[in-house]
Design a protein around this nucleic acid. Structure first.
Length: 557
DNA sequence: CTAGGGTTAG
């Protein structure tokens, strides 16, 4: 049995431990104090709650709250404030909110904490509500509260609200600080609001924040999103010290602007300079490759990253998986899957969706379905991935099943979902069903069909031999048909040997895509099927004139 | 004795 210490000596020990950030010790000393029958006062309790906050220990925090209530200390402003922060840190926002409403002295700091608490978990409307409630209670929001709300809007993709909040802050006479600037810039970029972006850039220069790494990275990102690659590179070059965040922003900016080769080049330069590359920098260069058709490079970089001792995370995996799928590199894909399981990220919705897609592209649709069924949470991307997988495999029955299941689960379909269901119907010859889904797109879901949907419909009708209907569908399109649409028509003209429409489609294709040998071959085959040898020779002559040769076939499987 | 906010990869 330990010797009982006096209340004041154990309390000074608690303060000392708290100063040293030894929060575990604070809690254990506090429980010893209680055990010895000492009653905590309004001075020690905030320190204890602070320890609970630091450790995200909600259980101990609630106990402290209970002690505060029974002893009446819960009316002390210090105790209240510390408890609010504890609940916010532990994401118990309802409790934080309840405390704030009961607080004796209104407090900007605690209200701001609640706003950013909601923002962090992506509950924008609650964040906004909290912001307005604090105003109603007579507390003027300050720069920090506004910044918190901006971060919340960004989190949920409400970029125009972010920019609006930023402007409102300025009109209220609040001077934006560095944090606010780096929070609003990603939104400015997504809105491609170059005017506001330039204004902010000017303000940054005026304030002398040109060497703040967060701000500079955010500026680079903003110019990249606004497609100002020269401005972007200028900001990067004018930095006095290389920063890893700015490098990553530059790489993704280059890639976004179609300069994947340059992105790869600057990445190599950073590596040669001996920069301490992190997951974000590696992932951005891998994304730059996989999003620009450089699948092999992406796979090589992924390997190189692991050799360099950098651990992939839940963003890296969805970046590398498309490269595995596109090259049917099943072994690499399986390895990435195994890695996700071992590192506990296989439940991530983006990882899961990317796995579904990868397995489908590698021909393993049953594993795709298994991944789908095992997902703890699904979003539109996951539903579209499995739907697209079934479509890819020509499994219309399963695709239709998924399409209805997703809606029964409360997930509204989008353009991508309709591409999936229509292409599944088209491939399986479900002509009437496909037409039904196509008609329901706008009528029932308010979604305007895009070129890919018309392409599916042309294939669907063409396959059924309804070439005239397919052609009138093209004529009805509210926008200019592209090569895919005409290509679909030409292919089925070949299947059904329809010279008249085949010539129309081919004429358009020769205009849109003159160097694709496939189109000439299709047309010449249509002529050949009817014994029109002079026409066959004419098409062959056209091909020779521009130096085209038949492409050899290629399959990854 | 308590106390709030940031960039870059999907």
């Amino acid at each position: 049995m330990q010797k009982s210490s006096s209340s004041s000596s154990i309390q000074s020990l608690i303060y000392a431990c708290s100063k040293l950030n030894n929060f575990e010790q604070v809690l254990s000393l506090f429980s010893r104090m209680l055990y010895q029958g000492h009653v905590p006062d309004a001075f020690i309790l905030p320190t204890v709650v602070k320890a609970c906050t630091a450790l995200s220990n909600i259980k101990a925090g609630r106990q402290a709250h209970g002690i505060a209530s029974v002893s009446g200390l819960d009316s002390d402003p210090y105790v209240q404030s510390s408890l609010v922060h504890m609940y916010v840190k532990c994401s118990q926002l309802k409790d934080a909110r309840k405390l704030l409403d009961a607080m004796s002295e209104p407090d900007v700091v605690s209200w701001s904490a609640l706003v950013s608490g909601y923002a962090r978990v992506g509950h924008v409307s609650e964040a906004k509500e909290a912001f307005e409630d604090m105003e109603r209670k007579g507390i003027e929001p300050n720069v920090v509260s506004s910044n918190g709300l901006i971060a919340g809007f960004n989190q949920s993709g409400c970029y125009s609200e972010s920019a609006l909040m930023f402007q409102m802050m300025r009109s209220r006479g609040l001077k934006p600080n560095g944090t606010g600037i780096s929070s609003v810039l990603p939104a400015v970029g997504d809105l491609e609001d170059l005017i506001l972006g330039n204004q902010i850039h000017g303000y940054v220069i005026k304030m002398g924040w040109g060497s703040d790494k967060c701000i500079v990275s955010a500026l680079i990102d903003m110019y990249g999103k606004c497609r100002c690659s020269s401005q972007m590179s200028r900001v990067f070059d004018e930095m006095d010290e290389l920063d890893i965040g700015a490098c990553s922003a530059l790489i993704s900016g280059l890639s976004r602007n179609g300069l994947a080769d340059k992105a790869l080049m600057v990445f190599r330069q950073f590596k040669d300079k001996g920069m301490d590359l992190n997951v974000v920098s590696w992932t951005s260069v891998i994304a730059a490759c996989s999003q620009n058709g450089k699948d092999m490079e992406a796979l090589d970089l992924f390997r190189e990253m692991q050799i360099a001792g950098v651990k992939p995370n839940s963003v890296t995996i969805p970046c590398i998986l498309p490269a595995c799928g596109n090259t049917a590199a099943l072994m690499h894909g399986k390895a990435a899957h195994g890695f996700s399981i071992r590192s506990g990220i296989s439940g991530d919705v983006y990882v899961g969706s990317a796995l579904i897609d990868m397995y489908a592209k590698c021909g393993r649709i049953k594993i795709s379905r298994l991944c789908f069924d095992r997902m703890p949470t699904r979003n539109l991307v996951s539903w579209n991935a499995i739907l697209g997988g079934y479509a890819m495999h020509g499994k219309a029955k399963e695709a239709i099943e998924i399409f209805h299941l997703m809606q029964r689960s409360g997930q509204k379909p989008d353009l991508v979902s309709f591409t999936g269901i229509l292409s599944a119907c088209s491939q399986s010859g479900l002509t009437e069903e496909g037409q039904c889904y196509f008609n329901s797109m706008f009528r029932e879901h308010g979604i305007e069909a895009g070129v890919e949907h018309y392409t599916c419909m042309v294939s669907l009708l063409g396959r059924a031999g309804k070439l005239e209907e397919a052609y009138s569908m093209i004529k009805k399109m509210p926008f200019e048909p592209n090569g895919c649409v005409w290509g679909a028509l030409l292919s089925f003209c070949r299947v059904h040997n329809n010279i008249a429409l085949g010539e129309i489609a081919a004429k358009q294709l020769f205009r849109l895509d003159p160097s694709n040998p496939g189109n000439y071959i299709l047309l010449s085959n249509i002529y050949a099927s009817k014994g029109k040898w002079r026409e066959v020779d004419r098409v062959r002559g056209m091909m020779n004139k521009i130096g085209l040769r038949k492409n050899p076939g290629c399959s990854w499987i």
